[in-house]
């Protein structure tokens, strides 16, 4: 469970970090343009996640994360993999880190499950290609956002994403969302219409309330799952993610592409 001070801390990190590193809004633009997506240089404000691959091997931990996400965002349950909507899910190690795999790796390593989600890249290709700015990188905290009302459903972002992190609503998702006896969906998060693309939003709606992302909170509640997922701001030197990133061996997906993922994995 979150302590009160922790919540307040999370809530204010983004704004504070922006002010600290850039000294006010006038300089924000200059700061942004000076930022190097290939690493190095101070980050203005960027939410990031660290996934502990060892701790997330427990299926109960991963399942709790996925369920929490489905409930928090009213994600439809679609069995057909060709149409399934996925925000956070399992993939095999060899497919998540194709550049790290060699023939001598034991099978259990190759096929180990890894949790994947949108990387909220420093240099997101999906944002670059979107013809309507329906997806954009939010300046104040680096989240790659989606505007479901502006999206025209051209799926160019899905062609551009090197991580397969985006899903298109091929059909009306609403009949396939979990509902209670009264027919109400699980959360206030707006349901989507068919014909638009969606993906993980790092729980922007929960961060606004000072809460951690649903998956992070859920993992922490599973015995043995504490710390399987860590979340914090890269601009805050004291954040848990920064401490882990500066002290442990972590990797990101497909570094050579220069997208600058903000989901890190402890190997």
């Amino acid at each position: 469970m979150e302590s009160k001070s922790r919540r307040t801390f999370l809530k204010e990190t983004a704004g504070a970090a922006l002010g600290l590193s850039c000294g006010g809004s006038v300089l924000t633009a200059a700061c942004t343009s000076g930022e190097d997506s290939h690493g190095g240089g101070p980050v203005e404000s960027q939410w990031a996640m660290v996934i502990d691959m060892e701790k997330s091997q427990d299926p109960a931990v991963r399942e709790a994360c996925y369920e929490a996400c489905i409930q928090a965002h009213n994600i439809p349950r679609i069995e057909d993999p060709e149409e399934r909507i996925r925000w956070i899910w399992d993939e095999e190690y060899q497919d998540v880190f194709p550049d790290q795999v060699h023939d001598q790796l034991p099978d259990d390593v190759k096929h180990a499950p890894v949790m994947v989600l949108c990387n909220h890249c420093m240099n997101p290709p999906c944002v670059r290609v979107c013809p309507t700015q329906a997806t954009w990188k939010r300046e104040e905290d680096g989240i790659v956002m989606m505007d479901m009302h502006r999206c025209i459903g051209c799926r160019y972002c899905m062609a551009a994403c090197p991580y397969g992190s985006r899903s298109f609503n091929w059909r009306d998702p609403r009949p396939l969302i979990d509902k209670d006896a009264q027919g109400n969906v699980a959360s206030d998060f707006p349901t989507r219409t068919r014909g638009v693309v969606e993906k993980c939003n790092f729980c922007a709606e929960r961060l606004r309330e000072g809460l951690q992302p649903a998956c992070v909170e859920a993992a922490n509640q599973v015995p043995g799952g504490e710390g399987a997922l860590m979340f914090g701001n890269l601009a805050d030197p004291g954040s848990e993610v920064n401490q882990v990133l500066s002290s442990q061996r972590t990797i990101t997906r497909r570094v050579a592409l220069g997208t600058g993922p903000n989901v890190f994995y402890i190997v």
Binding site: T132, R150, C151, I152, C154, T193, R194, V196
Partner: peptide
């Protein structure tokens, strides 16, 4: 090919 063909004008309303 568009998922939301009625929003086609968004390409001109939000030139990118």
């Amino acid at each position: 090919d568009m998922g939301q063909p009625t929003r086609v004008t968004n390409v001109l309303l939000h030139p990118t």
